[in-house]
């Protein structure tokens, strides 16, 4: 099971700001071990954020994104106490979904 994300969501003047920190190795597939063997590519391919069953952010990630990626986005709406859920899928088919409560 992949490691959890850290998600912080705050609403201000009707706009919710979501900060996501994901735990992932994000291997490019271009790096080699000390003995020369290639480290296979392993990276997040899709990130999706949902609010009240509605997708508010969708992103496609590739090899160029760093290890333990950090993502910030804003969407219109949202109220304190409500939940935002974020999920990602990687190229091995592993996935992780976490939720955060919006703070004022």
């Amino acid at each position: 099971m992949p490691n959890p994300m850290k998600i912080r969501a705050t609403v201000k003047d009707g706009v919710t700001e979501v900060k996501i920190l994901m735990q992932h190795d994000m291997e490019t597939g271009l790096r080699k071990e000390a003995d020369g063997t290639l480290i296979p590519a392993w990276f997040i391919t899709e990130v999706k954020a949902q609010y009240q069953g509605r997708t508010v952010m969708e992103a496609q990630f590739g090899q160029s994104v760093s290890k333990n990626p950090y993502l910030l986005f804003r969407f219109k709406g949202g109220a304190a106490g409500e939940k935002v859920s974020v999920s990602w899928v990687d190229n091995k088919g592993e996935s992780r979904t976490d939720e955060a409560t919006i703070a004022a």
Binding site: R8, L21, L72
Partner: peptide, 10 residues
């Protein structure tokens, strides 16, 4: 920019 996304938290 990334100070509130510090992976040291993990």
């Amino acid at each position: 920019m990334i100070s509130d996304g510090n992976p040291a938290e993990f």
